[in-house]
Amino acid sequence: MVNDAFAPADLGPVRLRNRIVKAATFEGRTPEGLVTDELIDYHLAPARGGVGLTTVAYLAVAPEGRTHREVIVVDDRSAAGLARMAEKIHETGAKIGGQLGHAGPVANGRSNGVHALAASRMPSPLSMQMIRSATEADIARITKDYVRTARIMVDAGFDVLEIHMAHGYLLSSFLAPGQNRRKDSWNGSLENRARFARQVARAVREEVGDSAAVIAKIGMTEGSPVGFSMPESVEFAQLLESDGHLDALELSAGSSLLNPMYLFRGGVPLQEFAANMPAAVRLGMRTPVGKKFFKSYPFEEAFLREKALAFREAVSMPLIMLGGINERATVDRAMAEGFEFVAMARALLREPDLPNRMAADSDARGICIHCNQCMPTIYTRTRCTVIEPQA
């Protein structure tokens, strides 16, 4: 039986009104590291526009796990604002999810005032500092941080917890053999490299039980020879499924430090990115090496579909497909091919009410032109910069 994307569906213990997910993408609306009215309005737009679930991005589990200092750290200081946001989203009939993340090597240690962590010591292109290798004590502490964060979020009314295991963040920095150069039991076999991520998933599930859905965002490939990639990523998904702690996997790709455009197909706004970067990073981006870092990939509808199908064949647990989903026909095809949910990001930034249009019209398609001019705005309030009348 083919799923109806616009009928109610269960994500673990949580009932969603449909199978459309607003993916976690950086909002740029927390200048003091706290929930703001602007952040709530940002998520109210797709919630009112018809998504079943909207996901708040980059909720750091620890201060050094922020991408930069304006990111929310989930703690007693931010809990009241998170609860207020959850209440507002629930009033629309949508559910709310939060992305539990530790940015690891993607964190800007200079902005955060504390050095970033990774599986192995490495230089940071963001802070121009050395990123230190996580110790056994760090791993134990951060696992507890994930648990504490999960409890606060559930108590605040969040329905879904998304553990970030992709994009070069801390947990995924352990996965890639080209980045994990440790000499201890956290390196070697895939089972060893995956142990931290699996440990976090187990600890979070044990803490929240069935009071929330627990999912993970994983990277199918980072698009780099030294990054985590298929077929090991498929084996990683199978390990997560065998553990039984997760209700779904969201299938992503790319790496914030190795190949960021692999996930954002379409235009490459290099000049706009450079204008928002620190001076040293801006200078580096103007070199041939910097330009090569932002590779160009043409946009194609559902550009991660073929890779996602390999995961669909390998595991039976629910999967969330993302990557260039703009048309109702693509949503219907994803359901026919066995995916339980689809996630959208740029299309909803351009048109927050696109899910309602899709539900009403089988021929509906979004008007996002995939110029990616929205990407540099993450530093100044994420938004669509294209102003044009709807057709």
Rank of each mutant, 00 (worst) to 15 (best):
F6A: 10
I20T: 15
I20H: 09
V21C: 09
V21H: 03
E27I: 12
P31A: 03
V35H: 02
D37K: 03
Y42I: 08
T54I: 07
A62L: 15
E64D: 15
V73N: 11
V73R: 15
L82C: 07
K88M: 03
G97W: 00
Q99Y: 02
A103Q: 07
A103N: 05
A116S: 02
A116C: 10
L117M: 02
A118R: 06
R121E: 08
R121D: 12
L126M: 15
I131K: 04
R132N: 03
A137Q: 01
I142N: 08
T149S: 04
A150F: 11
I152P: 03
Y169Q: 04
N180W: 07
N187I: 01
S189I: 08
R195M: 11
A197D: 06
E207W: 08
G209C: 10
D210V: 00
D210W: 02
D210G: 12
V214E: 00
V214L: 00
A216N: 03
G223R: 13
S224C: 02
P231K: 14
E235Y: 08
F236K: 11
A237D: 09
H245Q: 12
R265Y: 03
P269Y: 15
L270M: 12
L270W: 02
L270N: 13
F273W: 03
A275R: 08
A275T: 12
M277G: 15
E306K: 15
L309T: 12
S316K: 14
M321D: 06
I325V: 13
A329Q: 00
M335S: 11
E337C: 09
E340Q: 11
A343R: 07
L348S: 14
L349M: 05
P355T: 13
A359H: 07
D363Y: 03
G366Q: 03
I367A: 12
I367D: 09
C368R: 03
P376K: 14
P376F: 04
I378Y: 08
T382V: 04
R383Q: 06
